[in-house]
Simulated assay, not measured.
Amino acid sequence: MNQSATTPDRAGQARKLAVIVVGLAAVVVAMLCAFALPSVNSGPHNIPVGVTGSQDATAALSKALSGEEWDVSTYDDEKALTAAVKDREVMGGIVPAEGHLTAYTATAGGAQSAATLTSAATALAKQQQAEVTVTDLRPFPSEDPRGSGFSSAALPMIFGGMIPAMILSRLFPGHAGLRLRLAGGIAFAVVAGFAVAAFLQYGTGSLSGDYLMTSLGLSLGMAALCLTLLGLESLMGMAGFGLGAAVVMLLGNPLSGLASGPHWLPNGWATLGQLLPPGASGSLLRANAFFDGTGGGGSALTLGCWVLLGLALILIADRRGPREAAVEEPGRQPQLV
C-alpha cells in the first residue's frame, strides 16, 4: 500500500520537475532573444535628418541619404534647420555651399546617430572634393563629453524601482502593510530621483539641464516602475513581482535606447522600448537634461500611465483585502443578547 502511494507521488514530482526545467529553459531562450535580437539588428533606422539649400542641392542630398538609414526633411533655410535640431524634430542636418558642407549634429540626442551623420557628411564632402565643418548644437557637458554618466543611468533607474519594491514587500507584508508600502514607494522615488540627479549633475557633471525638472523626471520614472511592481505583488504575490521584474529586465533594459537613442534599434523594438518604464524614463531624462524638456511630453505621459496603473492595482488589492480576510476568518456563532 505504501509502495502504490509512493509511485503516483514520484510520478507527480517528476512531471513537476519536467515543467520547471522546460519553463526555465524557455526563460533563458526569451532572455537571449530579448538581448541578442535588438543587438544583432541594431544600426541606423530612419534617423530623421534635415537638409536645406538650393533645389538641386537638396535633391542631390536627399538622393545620397536615401535608404532605410535616413528620414530626410527639407527646410527653407539654415536657421530653420538648426532650430529643428534644437527642438528635436531631426537628429541633425546638412547644409551645402560652394566647395563646402556644414553638418549640424546633436550628440546628446544620440551619440551614434550623430557619429553616423558626421561620417555621411564627410563621405559626401570627399566625393564633391569639398571641405566639411561639423557643428554640435547639443553636445554632452564638457565634464563628460562622451556621455558616460548619462548612459550608465539605465541600471540605477531600473534597480531604483525594483529593489525598493522588493524590500518594502518583505518589510511590510500583507494587506496590513499595503498603504505603508505605497507611501514608502512614493517617498523613495522622490528622494532617489533628487539624489541621482544631484550626483549626475553636480558629482560627475554628466547632466546640464534644470536640476529641479531633471529630478522630478527621474522621480516619476522610478515611481512608475516601483508602484507597478508593488501593485503586481499586492495582487499576485511574488509571482506578480517576478513577472513584472522579468519584463523590465528582459525587455525594458535592452530596449531602452538610453545609450544609443531609439533610432539605433529596429522600429518595432524601439517603439516597444519607449512604451516601457526604462525607455520612457531614459527619453525623459535626455529631454530634461539636454533639451530643456523639449520632446519629453510623450515620455512623461507614458510614465504617468504606468503610475496610474500601479495605483489602480494597489487600490484593487486594498479593496479586495478586507473581503478576503472576512471570508478566511473562522465563522463565529451568533451571540445572544
Score class of each variant (00 low, 15 high):
residue 221 G to F: 01
residue 329 E to V: 10
residue 203 G to Q: 11
residue 278 P to L: 03
residue 329 E to F: 14
residue 153 A to C: 08
residue 21 V to T: 12
residue 75 Y to D: 01
residue 86 K to E: 12
residue 31 M to Y: 06
residue 84 A to W: 01
residue 168 L to D: 01
residue 303 L to D: 03
residue 109 G to Q: 00
residue 166 M to R: 05
residue 260 S to C: 04
residue 247 V to D: 02
residue 175 H to V: 09
residue 178 L to H: 03
residue 202 Y to Q: 15
residue 215 S to Q: 06
residue 231 G to V: 01
residue 14 A to C: 14
residue 256 S to Q: 08
residue 33 C to A: 14
residue 265 L to Q: 06
residue 73 S to D: 14
residue 185 G to A: 15
residue 251 L to S: 06
residue 37 L to Y: 09
residue 232 L to V: 08
residue 189 A to G: 05
residue 187 A to G: 15
residue 60 A to Y: 05
residue 334 P to I: 08
residue 121 A to Y: 02
residue 80 A to P: 03
residue 175 H to S: 13
residue 80 A to C: 07
residue 75 Y to S: 05
residue 36 A to H: 09
residue 19 V to R: 14
residue 136 D to M: 07
residue 55 Q to F: 05
residue 28 V to H: 08
residue 173 P to Q: 09
residue 283 S to T: 10
residue 35 F to V: 03
residue 159 F to L: 14
residue 260 S to F: 03
residue 297 G to K: 15
residue 12 G to Y: 13
residue 27 V to D: 05
residue 104 Y to D: 00
residue 49 V to W: 00
residue 290 F to L: 02
residue 312 A to D: 06
residue 22 V to S: 09
residue 270 A to E: 04
residue 43 G to S: 10
residue 304 G to F: 01
residue 237 G to F: 07
residue 334 P to Y: 10
residue 145 P to S: 15
residue 185 G to N: 06
residue 305 C to N: 08
residue 37 L to D: 01
residue 122 T to W: 06
residue 245 A to F: 00
residue 334 P to T: 08
residue 34 A to P: 00
residue 47 I to W: 01
residue 276 L to C: 09
residue 111 A to N: 06
residue 163 I to P: 01
residue 51 V to P: 02
residue 174 G to Q: 09
residue 207 L to N: 02
residue 300 A to D: 04
residue 104 Y to P: 00
residue 302 T to L: 07
residue 41 N to P: 05
residue 81 L to E: 00
residue 180 L to P: 09
residue 97 A to R: 03
residue 226 C to D: 12
residue 13 Q to N: 15
residue 167 I to N: 10
residue 324 E to C: 12
residue 220 L to M: 11
residue 162 M to I: 15
residue 144 D to F: 04
residue 46 N to T: 14
residue 95 V to Y: 00
residue 260 S to N: 13
residue 239 A to P: 04
residue 124 L to V: 07
residue 34 A to D: 02
residue 63 K to Y: 13
residue 119 S to L: 12
residue 168 L to T: 02
residue 68 E to M: 08
residue 230 L to I: 14
residue 127 Q to D: 14
residue 331 G to T: 15
residue 306 W to S: 00
residue 299 S to R: 04
residue 211 Y to L: 15
residue 228 T to M: 06
residue 272 L to K: 04
residue 5 A to C: 13
residue 120 A to C: 13
residue 18 A to S: 12
residue 53 G to N: 06
residue 275 L to M: 11
residue 165 A to H: 02
residue 33 C to R: 10
residue 300 A to H: 01
residue 230 L to G: 05
residue 296 G to K: 03
residue 165 A to T: 04
